[in-house]
């Protein structure tokens, strides 16, 4: 039981659709796991279950000694899981810096009293929040730091993706869940992303689970790949193993294979 995150037989049904069907899944500290599968395979639902947006119908979820089932999303962030969203969801009317500062919320305490009387603790804490936000932003070199006072909505698309990751980093997670980080990026930017994900692991020590449709990115970063189809785990292993798996090929290329599975 040395896994950082471990899912056992997790299921979720929406009406007549079995979105996730008794999936076992794990991620170890410092590991990068790629999750692939056709549209509607249940990848994002799996993320939403892990982060507490949906509660599973069945199954166990353990993270770093905590049982995650029944916890609210904000509590799960506190124990150390942070995520990005498939469609970039920044706080559009807040500045780049403020977006990153919000990430520090669970790591700080100041309430009404501190804010009203500007106590020494609040001042120190705000200083810490500021420093930590700048630190997260400067992980992306010169991409975000010159724009800290711009509104998030004023950023270019690739920078928005970067900011979303910076905001997730500001929560000081142990595990980072990235939902299609390469979507909408050009080949050069994808190269940069592969390098970035590697650095996130090496420099920050995060375990990373990413959902991605872009196979070169999956191939470039993943230590292990998990393939889902119709809510079921259909393959697991190294990229080459999974890519060669007939069920995976069937799921991506044609109906014949997957219909046999059903």
């Amino acid at each position: 039981m040395s896994h950082l995150l471990e899912l056992e037989g997790v299921s979720k049904r929406f009406g007549g659709v079995q979105a996730v069907d008794s999936v076992d899944f794990f991620a170890d500290p410092g590991e990068i796991v790629g999750v692939i599968g056709p549209n509607g395979a249940g990848k994002t639902t799996l993320f939403n279950i892990v982060t507490g947006f949906y509660s599973p119908d069945a199954g166990k979820i353990n993270f770093d000694g905590h049982n995650l089932v029944g916890l609210k999303p904000n509590q799960i962030t506190r124990v150390g899981i942070s995520r990005t969203f498939q469609s970039v969801r920044l706080f559009a009317a807040m500045t780049v810096l403020e977006n990153a500062m919000v990430g520090q919320h669970t790591r700080t305490k100041a309430g009404i009293y501190g804010a009203l009387f500007n106590t020494r603790r609040t001042v120190n804490e705000e200083q810490k929040v500021h420093t930590s936000a700048i630190e997260s932003l400067s992980f992306f070199g010169e991409r975000l730091t010159p724009r800290i006072n711009s509104l998030a909505s004023e950023l270019a698309y690739a920078d928005r993706r970067r900011l979303e990751i910076a905001r997730a980093m500001a929560t000081e997670p142990q595990l980072l869940l990235l939902d299609e980080p390469a979507a909408g990026m050009n080949p050069a930017e994808k190269e940069g992303l592969i390098e970035l994900i590697g650095r996130l692991r090496d420099e920050k020590g995060y375990a990373i689970v990413l959902i991605e449709h872009d196979m070169p990115v999956i191939k470039g970063v993943s230590d292990r790949v998990v393939a889902l189809d119709y809510g079921k785990k259909i393959a697991e292993g190294s990229y080459d193993e999974v890519a060669a798996d007939p069920q995976v090929i069937a799921a991506y290329l044609g109906k014949a294979g997957s219909e046999e599975q059903q």
Partner: peptide
């Protein structure tokens, strides 16, 4: 005092996107 504090930021985040605010630990 509140608007630029931790509380104010939490409110602003909630106003912008409730789900994401929750995912950020609010």
């Amino acid at each position: 005092r509140l608007v630029d504090s931790r509380v104010g930021r939490a409110w602003a985040a909630m106003r912008e996107d409730e789900d994401v605010a929750e995912a950020m630990g609010i």
